[in-house]
Design a protein around this nucleic acid. Structure first.
Length: 580
DNA sequence: TGCGGCTATTG
DNA sequence: CACAATAGCCGCAG
């Protein structure tokens, strides 16, 4: 049944009649000025002028769980100044269920309908192949049961007046949500609460849309000054830029009798150059050259050149112009779950900003940053997901490595190496010795890690505590013992820890987001184990307390019975650089 | 033009 | 360098 509503009040009444209330799923698609809703088999379109006002009204009075195909809709909502509390992101939940990174609508549809993914329609095919079966190209589902590749993502090309098409997209999202809910309860052995993970990962998509929209506060003038002091003023043209490169290169070449034919940007040239001054190295990475500064002055000059070159090429004037707006906000695209284990990732340097540039990340007038990071999150998460009682006891200490050192009878530094080596799968060097103590001291945790590594080596996919499928890749040529298998083993071993840590972190982040309420405070950066909030000065202490409370709440939601203690280090600062 | 290698930065 | 990521420049294959 398709129905068009004309006002916020009518939208609330209509959805309310359909039983919508707090937490009840409502499909939504939003793009540009258009919005469509769906509840059960009822689809509701909203007159364009009222579209976002209706969403806002429904959110305020009913607060449903908005079911969306992807972060595209979340972005449209945020751009229209609407921040909804909760979501179900079909694409994000698909990545959780099926692993990997692909989450286009046709593929998600095929997965949930048991269709062979190898025949999934691909965008750009224009359905020329599907059109020969006598079907109607204006229907979302092809006669063979597959979803047309561009039906969902191409919805924005349709007129807002094509109500049936908009409504169908919202309705399909809602119907897939119930299929995903079903799949989550039957998707193999998941130790944790996969449905709770799906909710948190979905809400993290909302947070990502907000992070991309809000940006990170930067003191633009200070940034220009700092960059200029390091690499000079911004080049005005290509010749200017080339002159800058020559000037930087000359500082290195000054230490050589002949620099003919040396391109400092070519590692092979650099290696040859070093050999000519009596330095023979297998590669020219900084850590390898670090101890050779005294051998020849060119080493020192080269390492300084690398620093300068990095600023000039990656974090220089071009970066500033491209990613920092005139409003002094650094913006980049955010992904809520990426890579092997489902960590958040960010572009535009938000996740790998050199420490020396953190000086220019400065709170705006009347505001401060509240920065909080989780201490030793990975070993604490390992204690929780493995259920190792001895390691759980160690988490009661502020410094987990102290009781581990006592138990192993070694120095703290050795204990730390041992724990990290266990989680990363390192076996060489000093780690080998330290690991033997781990086997007897923390056998449950070690067996947990070894089991993951063995699955990885055998090419068997694994699931994290929260239920994310981690694909470890095919085993080729029956290679169960070679270097490739060993690498898969380390990958799987670490993914179980890093992936679970990412899940806990996101529960924490979305809990903080939910509990901020009317405080003038927003999360402006997520960095794996660290949250940075931009907060009005007089709310700072309240936010500090809230971060700690939310960690307790998040840890309990994530793993209600672990008994593991998680700790956070929180500070109030003007500049990001002032923290720690 | 796309891709792997090398390098740097971050957690 | 033991795990994960983003990003730029180079050489090389197509």
């Amino acid at each position: 049944m398709l129905r068009t509503v004309h006002s916020p009040d009518e939208a609330i009444a209509t959805l309310s009649d359909q039983g919508v209330q707090r937490g009840i799923p409502v499909g939504i698609v939003a793009h540009g000025a258009s919005v469509g809703f769906a509840v059960g088999d009822h689809t509701i379109t909203v007159e364009e002028a009222d579209a976002y006002r209706c969403v806002d009204a429904v959110e305020r009075s009913l607060r449903p769980r908005w079911v969306m195909w992807s972060g595209t809709t979340a972005g449209a909502l945020v751009r229209n100044n609407i921040r909804v509390a909760t979501a179900w992101d079909v694409a994000a939940v698909h990545r959780l269920l099926a692993g990997g990174w692909r989450n286009d609508p046709a593929r998600v549809w095929a997965y949930l309908h048991g269709l062979d993914r190898r025949h999934t329609p691909v965008a750009g095919q224009l359905d020329l192949m599907g059109g020969d079966a006598g079907d109607d190209g204006d229907q979302p589902i092809r006669p063979d049961g597959y979803l047309r590749a561009e039906w969902v993502d191409g919805i924005w090309q349709r007129s807002p007046a094509d109500a049936a098409a908009w409504a169908s997209v919202a309705l399909m999202a809602a119907s897939l949500q119930s299929k995903q809910l079903q799949a989550l309860t039957t998707s193999g052995a998941v130790a944790g609460d996969a449905e709770a993970t799906a909710r948190a990962e979905s809400t993290a998509e909302l947070l990502c849309a907000e992070l991309a929209h809000d940006g990170l506060p930067i003191d633009r003038l200070a940034a220009v000054e700092l960059i200029s002091s390091l690499v000079g003023p911004r080049p005005q043209n290509d010749a200017d830029a080339a002159e800058g490169r020559r000037r930087r290169d000359a500082a290195v070449f000054a230490h050589l009798s002949s620099a003919a034919g040396v391109d400092l940007r070519n590692p092979a040239d650099v290696k040859a150059m070093l050999r000519r001054v009596g330095i023979d190295v297998p590669d020219t990475r900084a850590w390898r050259l670090e101890g050779m500064r005294s051998v020849h002055p060119v080493v020192d000059a080269l390492l300084a050149w690398r620093k300068e070159e990095r600023i000039a090429t990656t974090f220089g004037h071009t970066w500033l112009a491209e990613h920092v707006g005139t409003d002094g906000r650094l913006r980049g695209a955010w992904s809520a779950s990426d890579g092997a284990a489902g960590r958040m990732t960010a572009q535009a340097g938000l996740h790998n900003l050199p420490a020396e540039l953190r000086d220019v990340v400065v709170a705006e007038h009347g505001h401060v940053f509240v920065r909080a990071d989780l201490g030793q999150i990975e070993p604490r998460v390992l204690a929780a997901v493995s259920g190792d009682e001895a390691l759980r006891r160690a988490t009661q200490d502020d410094d987990l490595y102290a009781p581990v050192a006592t138990r192993l009878g070694v120095e703290r530094s050795v204990a730390k190496i041992a724990v990290l080596a266990a989680m990363y799968g390192q076996t060489s060097g000093t780690a080998g010795q330290a690991l033997r103590g781990m086997e007897s001291g923390y056998p449950v945790a070690m067996k947990f890690l070894d089991a993951a590594a063995q699955q990885g080596q055998a090419g068997i996919n694994i699931r994290t505590y929260g239920g994310r499928l981690v694909r470890v890749g095919e085993v080729t040529d029956g290679d169960f013992r070679g270097a490739a298998a060993a690498a898969r083993g380390r990958y799987a071993r670490n993914a179980m820890v890093q992936g679970a840590a990412a899940e806990l972190f996101k529960v924490w982040a979305v809990t903080v987001r939910a509990r901020l309420g009317d405080l003038d405070a927003r999360i402006v950066l997520c960095l794996h184990d660290e949250l940075l909030l931009h907060v009005r000065e007089d709310h700072a202490h309240e936010v500090v307390a809230l971060l700690d409370r939310c960690l307790g709440e998040a840890a309990h939601r994530w793993h209600p019975t672990s008994g593991v203690r998680f700790v956070t280090d929180t500070s109030i600062v003007r500049s990001w650089a002032d923290a720690k």
